[in-house]
Simulated scan of single mutants.
Amino acid sequence: MPKTSKWVSAAAALAIVGTASAAHADKIKIGITQNNVGVDSYQTTYEKAFKAAAAKNPDVETVVLDAGGDVARQIGQMQDLIQQKVDVIIIWPTDGKAVVPVVRKAHQAGIPVVVTNSNIAADGLGFIAAFSGPNNIQQGASAAELMCEALGGKGQIVQISGQPGYTTAIEREKGFEDQLAKTCPGVKILETQPGDWNREKSQRVMEAFLVKYDKIDGVYSGDDNMGVGALNAAKAANRAAGIKFVGATNFAVGYDAMAKGEYYGSIYQSPVDDAEAALATAIAVKQGKTVPKLNYFETPKITKANMDKFTKPVF
Rank of each mutant, 00 (worst) to 15 (best):
K244D: 04
V158Q: 00
D178I: 01
K244P: 01
A25E: 15
I157F: 02
G69R: 06
Q34W: 13
K154S: 12
I16W: 02
G96H: 06
T311G: 08
G288K: 08
C184M: 06
A181F: 04
A20D: 04
S9Y: 06
A12Y: 13
I189T: 10
A109E: 10
A15S: 14
T94I: 13
G38Y: 12
A280W: 06
D217R: 03
I111S: 03
A12F: 13
A305Y: 07
T44M: 14
N117C: 02
A150S: 03
G18D: 15
I16Q: 10
T45L: 15
E200L: 08
F251G: 00
I170V: 07
A67R: 07
T4N: 14
T45C: 12
L81Q: 09
V39T: 14
D66P: 10
G76E: 11
D308Q: 13
K304D: 11
K289M: 14
P271L: 06
K304N: 13
P194Y: 04
K182E: 09
A54E: 02
G247T: 09
P112N: 02
S41H: 12
Q77E: 11
G31V: 08
K182G: 04
T299F: 06
S21M: 10
Y42F: 15
S266H: 09
I137A: 10
V103T: 02
V246F: 03
A257D: 07
E177M: 11
I216A: 01
I30V: 14
Q138F: 02
T192M: 00
A49V: 13
G247V: 07
I91G: 01
A257S: 12
Y46Q: 13
S9H: 08
L65Q: 13
T249R: 11
P292S: 03
D95G: 06
E262T: 04
S221T: 12
Q138W: 04
K212Q: 15
T167V: 12
A25C: 10
